[in-house]
Design a protein around this nucleic acid. Sequence first.
DNA 1: CCGTATCCTACAGGATACTG
DNA 2: CAGTATCCTGTAGGATACGG
Lengths: 118, 118
Amino acid sequence: MEKIYNNQVEVVLDIIGGKWKSHIILHLGNGPVRTGELKRLVTGITQKMLIEKLKELEQDGLVSRTVYNQVPPRVEYSLTTFGASLKDVLKVVCDWGDDYVRQRYPNDEVIIKHDLHR
Amino acid sequence: MEKIYNNQVEVVLDIIGGKWKSHIILHLGNGPVRTGELKRLVTGITQKMLIEKLKELEQDGLVSRTVYNQVPPRVEYSLTTFGASLKDVLKVVCDWGDDYVRQRYPNDEVIIKHDLHR
DNA sequence: CCGTATCCTACAGGATACTG
DNA sequence: CAGTATCCTGTAGGATACGG
């Protein structure tokens, strides 16, 4: 069953679109992160959404999941090569978003909670 | 009333997210386009969605709308400076999406209807 | 600590018909 | 030709509770 997109941007939107995925990817930049730590980093996300989105990112080849057989359980997530390259692209997007907000909303009408990349 | 985002990527997703906006922006690249022509270019979009998304893009400062007082009515849309710069960013996104699809789905499991930028 | 299962709600997106 | 007004539906996302 083929997937059909109008253009390549839609492919990327399908991968990082929605409320949480970009935030997750940007927090996976510095090496492996445990599930609980990630939940703490991605402010406001529920466990259900975190696991769900991580699973989707894994299926799309952007995130790898490592399980350590120990008690208590330990699971770590990190970016794959694909994920890392996408993160570089997101950096470009971030920079544009930054300029956009600064120029268009110079008086804090728009608030960025986690000001990344600058 | 302030808007709050987790990161700058969300700002951009708010602007170009959804099913149609990226497609519209990419088609507004080559100068002004009339409404009807745009509807023809953006395959499958309904009139309601087209107008709705154009209005949102205009409010976000990415698209400008020019009305010519004549009969029959003539309305043209084009990218603003902001819109044009965003289009350059989308080009980077497109390129990544292209590589991604080529490497991960080399056998046409994924189809791009409008193969842009290459 | 990590993941799953239910249930629920809001809203993006679509079909269609109408106006100037 | 360009735009508006209704009505409808699928699904992303959230609250909550449970299990290994």
